[in-house]
């Protein structure tokens, strides 16, 4: 069946069947392999993308269910070669170690900072409740988001 999506600002059309998850469509059909598959069942958040601005697990959404919507992935937030402030902050604080969880955390953080530009630590932690990291111990991820929030406010 046909599926029409806007991905990272670009309208496109593809083919998907009832088994194709949005995750598969992004990774296999569009070669957007920044979005990762960890658990494949909603527990880890590695596959987080935004659908119409809301973070979702792309392993639990069929491509066909997303038909007509606006999808934002980790590939869509940098400005050319300049990293997005959230990405830059992850690099600086050590919020990235093996990096497998990172795209998911960054997309969750992106949605948080759109809605809440100046979050408390508590708000940062609860925005990350759906994302698991086995490397960093989370503190550096929270540091990164706090740093990015400060810089993004400075820009505004």
């Amino acid at each position: 069946m046909k599926v029409r999506l806007t991905v990272n600002g670009r309208p496109l059309e593809g083919e998907a069947d009832a088994e194709t998850r949005l995750l598969d469509f992004l990774r296999e059909d569009l070669q957007l392999t920044g979005t990762k598959e960890g658990c494949g069942e909603g527990e880890c958040g590695a596959c987080t993308v935004l659908i119409d601005g809301q973070p979702v697990n792309s392993c639990l959404v069929l491509a066909l269910q997303a038909d007509g919507s606006d999808v934002l992935t980790i590939e869509g937030i940098a400005d050319g070669d300049t990293l997005h402030p959230i990405q830059q902050a992850f690099v600086e604080t050590g919020g990235v170690q093996c990096g497998f969880c990172t795209p998911g955390f960054i997309m969750a953080a992106y949605a948080l900072l759109k809605a809440t530009p100046n979050p408390t630590d508590e708000e940062i932690r609860s925005a990350l409740e759906g994302n698991l990291c086995r490397c960093t111990g989370y503190e550096r991820i929270v540091d990164a988001i706090r740093l990015a929030a400060g810089r993004m406010q400075g820009d505004a």
Binding site: G45, Q54, P55, N57, L60, A108, A111, E129, G130, N131
Partner: peptide
């Protein structure tokens, strides 16, 4: 319930 990602769906 679940997580933000789960509750959004």
């Amino acid at each position: 319930l679940g997580s933000i990602q789960i509750r959004n769906r």
